[in-house]
Amino acid sequence: MLSKRIIPCLDVKDGRTVKGVNFVDLRDAGDPVELAAQYAQQGADELVFLDITATHERRKTMIEMVKAVARQLNIPFTIGGGITEIADAEALLNAGADKISINSAAVRKPKLIEELARAFGVQFVVVAVDTKHIDGKNWVHLNGGRLITELQTEDWIKQAEELGAGEILLTSMDHDGTKAGFDCDLLKKVNEMINIPIIASGGAGNMAHFTEVFQKANVDAALAASVFHYGEILIPDLKQELSKHQIPVRI
Protein backbone atom coordinates (compact mmCIF):
# COMPACT_ATOMS: atom_id res chain seq x y z
CA MET A 1 0.00 0.00 0.00
CA LEU A 2 1.21 3.51 -0.76
CA SER A 3 2.62 5.02 2.42
CA LYS A 4 1.66 8.38 3.86
CA ARG A 5 4.77 10.53 3.73
CA ILE A 6 6.40 12.49 6.55
CA ILE A 7 8.34 15.50 5.31
CA PRO A 8 10.61 17.72 7.41
CA CYS A 9 11.03 21.20 5.94
CA LEU A 10 14.34 23.01 6.25
CA ASP A 11 14.86 26.73 5.78
CA VAL A 12 18.05 27.58 3.98
CA LYS A 13 19.84 30.93 3.88
CA ASP A 14 23.09 31.43 1.98
CA GLY A 15 23.49 27.68 1.66
CA ARG A 16 23.13 27.06 5.39
CA THR A 17 20.14 25.67 7.27
CA VAL A 18 18.60 28.10 9.72
CA LYS A 19 16.28 27.79 12.74
CA GLY A 20 17.61 26.09 15.82
CA VAL A 21 18.09 22.44 15.25
CA ASN A 22 19.02 20.49 18.32
CA PHE A 23 19.79 16.94 17.36
CA VAL A 24 22.17 15.67 19.97
CA ASP A 25 24.79 14.11 17.75
CA LEU A 26 24.83 16.75 15.07
CA ARG A 27 28.22 18.37 14.69
CA ASP A 28 27.04 21.27 12.59
CA ALA A 29 23.34 22.12 12.69
CA GLY A 30 23.81 24.59 9.86
CA ASP A 31 25.14 22.01 7.44
CA PRO A 32 22.26 21.03 5.15
CA VAL A 33 24.02 17.87 4.03
CA GLU A 34 24.56 16.54 7.53
CA LEU A 35 21.08 17.51 8.61
CA ALA A 36 19.48 15.92 5.56
CA ALA A 37 21.40 12.70 6.08
CA GLN A 38 20.29 12.65 9.71
CA TYR A 39 16.64 12.99 8.72
CA ALA A 40 16.98 10.28 6.09
CA GLN A 41 18.54 8.04 8.71
CA GLN A 42 15.61 8.69 11.06
CA GLY A 43 13.14 7.61 8.38
CA ALA A 44 11.97 10.86 6.80
CA ASP A 45 10.32 9.98 3.49
CA GLU A 46 11.28 13.13 1.68
CA LEU A 47 12.74 16.55 2.47
CA VAL A 48 11.82 20.07 1.46
CA PHE A 49 14.44 22.82 1.41
CA LEU A 50 13.03 26.32 1.35
CA ASP A 51 15.52 28.94 0.22
CA ILE A 52 15.02 32.23 2.05
CA THR A 53 18.17 33.86 0.69
CA ALA A 54 17.48 37.38 -0.53
CA THR A 55 20.78 38.17 -2.25
CA HIS A 56 21.75 38.04 -5.90
CA GLU A 57 24.18 35.24 -5.18
CA ARG A 58 21.21 33.05 -4.34
CA ARG A 59 21.15 30.79 -7.35
CA LYS A 60 24.82 29.86 -7.34
CA THR A 61 24.89 29.11 -3.62
CA MET A 62 21.73 27.06 -3.87
CA ILE A 63 23.00 24.95 -6.75
CA GLU A 64 26.12 24.06 -4.78
CA MET A 65 24.00 23.08 -1.80
CA VAL A 66 21.64 20.99 -3.93
CA LYS A 67 24.56 19.10 -5.45
CA ALA A 68 26.08 18.45 -2.04
CA VAL A 69 22.74 17.17 -0.72
CA ALA A 70 22.09 15.01 -3.78
CA ARG A 71 25.50 13.38 -3.44
CA GLN A 72 24.69 12.18 0.07
CA LEU A 73 20.93 11.82 0.30
CA ASN A 74 19.21 8.56 -0.67
CA ILE A 75 15.64 9.88 -0.48
CA PRO A 76 13.84 12.43 -2.68
CA PHE A 77 13.98 16.14 -1.99
CA THR A 78 12.25 19.29 -3.17
CA ILE A 79 13.69 22.77 -3.53
CA GLY A 80 11.52 25.86 -3.12
CA GLY A 81 12.08 29.59 -3.01
CA GLY A 82 13.04 32.06 -5.69
CA ILE A 83 12.24 29.92 -8.71
CA THR A 84 10.80 32.24 -11.32
CA GLU A 85 11.82 30.80 -14.66
CA ILE A 86 12.57 27.58 -16.51
CA ALA A 87 16.33 28.16 -16.26
CA ASP A 88 16.15 28.17 -12.43
CA ALA A 89 14.29 24.89 -12.43
CA GLU A 90 16.58 23.28 -14.98
CA ALA A 91 19.67 24.19 -12.98
CA LEU A 92 18.13 22.61 -9.88
CA LEU A 93 17.12 19.48 -11.79
CA ASN A 94 20.63 19.08 -13.14
CA ALA A 95 22.02 19.51 -9.64
CA GLY A 96 19.95 16.54 -8.46
CA ALA A 97 16.71 18.01 -7.09
CA ASP A 98 13.73 15.68 -7.52
CA LYS A 99 11.10 18.37 -7.49
CA ILE A 100 10.84 22.12 -7.34
CA SER A 101 8.21 24.07 -5.49
CA ILE A 102 6.86 27.33 -6.87
CA ASN A 103 4.59 29.76 -5.08
CA SER A 104 4.45 33.51 -5.87
CA ALA A 105 5.95 33.06 -9.32
CA ALA A 106 3.08 30.75 -10.26
CA VAL A 107 0.47 33.18 -8.96
CA ARG A 108 2.07 36.03 -10.90
CA LYS A 109 2.44 33.91 -14.03
CA PRO A 110 0.25 30.79 -13.99
CA LYS A 111 1.63 29.75 -17.38
CA LEU A 112 4.91 28.97 -15.62
CA ILE A 113 3.30 25.82 -14.20
CA GLU A 114 2.42 24.69 -17.70
CA GLU A 115 5.88 25.48 -19.04
CA LEU A 116 7.62 23.61 -16.23
CA ALA A 117 5.33 20.60 -16.54
CA ARG A 118 5.93 20.43 -20.28
CA ALA A 119 9.69 20.77 -19.91
CA PHE A 120 10.29 18.43 -16.98
CA GLY A 121 7.10 16.44 -16.38
CA VAL A 122 4.31 17.04 -13.88
CA GLN A 123 6.11 14.96 -11.23
CA PHE A 124 8.73 17.70 -11.00
CA VAL A 125 6.31 20.55 -10.26
CA VAL A 126 5.00 21.20 -6.77
CA VAL A 127 2.76 24.22 -6.41
CA ALA A 128 2.92 25.67 -2.90
CA VAL A 129 -0.08 27.63 -1.75
CA ASP A 130 -0.27 29.79 1.38
CA THR A 131 -3.85 30.34 2.45
CA LYS A 132 -5.74 32.41 5.01
CA HIS A 133 -9.37 32.27 6.04
CA ILE A 134 -11.06 35.68 5.84
CA ASP A 135 -14.79 36.35 6.21
CA GLY A 136 -15.80 32.81 5.44
CA LYS A 137 -13.57 32.38 2.39
CA ASN A 138 -10.05 31.08 1.79
CA TRP A 139 -7.66 33.45 0.05
CA VAL A 140 -4.27 32.78 -1.47
CA HIS A 141 -1.53 34.87 0.16
CA LEU A 142 1.99 35.69 -0.92
CA ASN A 143 5.16 36.76 0.88
CA GLY A 144 4.67 34.47 3.85
CA GLY A 145 1.09 35.52 4.36
CA ARG A 146 1.67 39.25 4.28
CA LEU A 147 0.16 39.92 0.87
CA ILE A 148 -3.38 38.93 0.00
CA THR A 149 -4.28 38.08 -3.60
CA GLU A 150 -7.59 38.12 -5.42
CA LEU A 151 -7.48 34.35 -5.79
CA GLN A 152 -9.65 32.04 -3.77
CA THR A 153 -7.61 29.10 -2.59
CA GLU A 154 -9.85 26.36 -3.95
CA ASP A 155 -10.07 28.00 -7.40
CA TRP A 156 -6.32 28.54 -7.61
CA ILE A 157 -5.49 24.97 -6.67
CA LYS A 158 -7.93 23.61 -9.22
CA GLN A 159 -6.35 25.86 -11.84
CA ALA A 160 -2.85 24.79 -10.81
CA GLU A 161 -3.82 21.15 -11.24
CA GLU A 162 -5.24 21.82 -14.69
CA LEU A 163 -2.07 23.68 -15.69
CA GLY A 164 0.09 20.71 -14.78
CA ALA A 165 0.99 20.82 -11.09
CA GLY A 166 2.08 17.35 -9.96
CA GLU A 167 1.51 17.99 -6.30
CA ILE A 168 0.07 20.67 -4.01
CA LEU A 169 1.76 21.88 -0.83
CA LEU A 170 -0.97 23.65 1.10
CA THR A 171 0.03 25.77 4.08
CA SER A 172 -2.60 27.28 6.31
CA MET A 173 -1.24 30.61 7.52
CA ASP A 174 -3.91 30.62 10.23
CA HIS A 175 -2.53 27.39 11.66
CA ASP A 176 1.16 27.86 10.85
CA GLY A 177 3.17 28.41 14.01
CA THR A 178 0.23 27.74 16.36
CA LYS A 179 1.10 24.09 17.05
CA ALA A 180 -2.65 23.59 17.40
CA GLY A 181 -3.02 21.07 14.57
CA PHE A 182 -3.43 21.13 10.78
CA ASP A 183 -6.41 22.77 9.07
CA CYS A 184 -8.13 19.44 8.49
CA ASP A 185 -11.39 20.90 7.17
CA LEU A 186 -9.77 22.87 4.37
CA LEU A 187 -7.30 20.09 3.56
CA LYS A 188 -10.14 17.59 3.30
CA LYS A 189 -12.14 19.88 1.06
CA VAL A 190 -9.21 20.55 -1.26
CA ASN A 191 -8.09 16.94 -1.27
CA GLU A 192 -11.51 15.76 -2.45
CA MET A 193 -11.44 18.33 -5.23
CA ILE A 194 -8.19 17.31 -6.91
CA ASN A 195 -6.61 14.19 -8.36
CA ILE A 196 -2.95 14.91 -7.52
CA PRO A 197 -1.14 14.35 -4.21
CA ILE A 198 -1.47 16.98 -1.49
CA ILE A 199 0.97 17.79 1.31
CA ALA A 200 -0.51 19.27 4.50
CA SER A 201 1.45 22.04 6.16
CA GLY A 202 1.00 24.41 9.06
CA GLY A 203 0.06 23.70 12.63
CA ALA A 204 1.78 20.46 13.61
CA GLY A 205 2.39 20.48 17.36
CA ASN A 206 2.22 16.86 18.43
CA MET A 207 1.93 13.34 17.05
CA ALA A 208 -1.86 13.28 17.40
CA HIS A 209 -2.06 16.13 14.89
CA PHE A 210 -0.45 13.94 12.24
CA THR A 211 -2.81 11.06 12.97
CA GLU A 212 -5.70 13.50 12.76
CA VAL A 213 -4.73 15.02 9.41
CA PHE A 214 -4.24 11.62 7.79
CA GLN A 215 -7.47 10.24 9.22
CA LYS A 216 -9.69 13.28 8.68
CA ALA A 217 -8.29 14.79 5.50
CA ASN A 218 -6.67 11.68 4.00
CA VAL A 219 -3.79 13.82 2.71
CA ASP A 220 -0.85 12.10 1.03
CA ALA A 221 1.86 13.69 3.13
CA ALA A 222 2.36 15.95 6.12
CA LEU A 223 5.10 18.54 6.39
CA ALA A 224 6.46 20.21 9.50
CA ALA A 225 9.54 22.13 10.56
CA SER A 226 10.01 23.11 14.18
CA VAL A 227 8.56 19.99 15.85
CA PHE A 228 11.20 17.97 14.02
CA HIS A 229 14.06 20.45 14.26
CA TYR A 230 13.70 20.90 18.01
CA GLY A 231 13.39 17.19 18.55
CA GLU A 232 9.86 17.52 19.95
CA ILE A 233 8.75 14.75 17.65
CA LEU A 234 11.12 12.01 16.56
CA ILE A 235 10.25 10.52 13.20
CA PRO A 236 10.60 6.87 14.28
CA ASP A 237 8.19 7.51 17.18
CA LEU A 238 5.78 9.34 14.90
CA LYS A 239 5.73 6.47 12.43
CA GLN A 240 5.11 3.94 15.18
CA GLU A 241 2.22 6.06 16.40
CA LEU A 242 0.71 6.39 12.91
CA SER A 243 1.14 2.70 12.34
CA LYS A 244 -0.80 1.98 15.56
CA HIS A 245 -3.68 3.86 14.00
CA GLN A 246 -3.49 1.73 10.82
CA ILE A 247 -2.09 4.61 8.80
CA PRO A 248 0.29 3.10 6.23
CA VAL A 249 3.84 4.37 6.73
CA ARG A 250 7.33 3.29 5.76
CA ILE A 251 9.12 1.93 8.80
Partner: peptide, 9 residues
Protein backbone atom coordinates in the same frame (compact mmCIF):
# COMPACT_ATOMS: atom_id res chain seq x y z
CA UNK B 1 -4.36 9.95 -7.73
CA UNK B 2 -2.01 10.26 -10.65
CA UNK B 3 1.00 10.26 -10.58
CA UNK B 4 1.64 7.32 -8.26
CA UNK B 5 4.08 9.19 -6.07
CA UNK B 6 5.78 7.97 -2.93
CA UNK B 7 6.89 4.83 -1.12
CA UNK B 8 5.09 1.58 -1.78
CA UNK B 9 5.58 -2.04 -0.74
Amino acid sequence: KIPHMGWNN
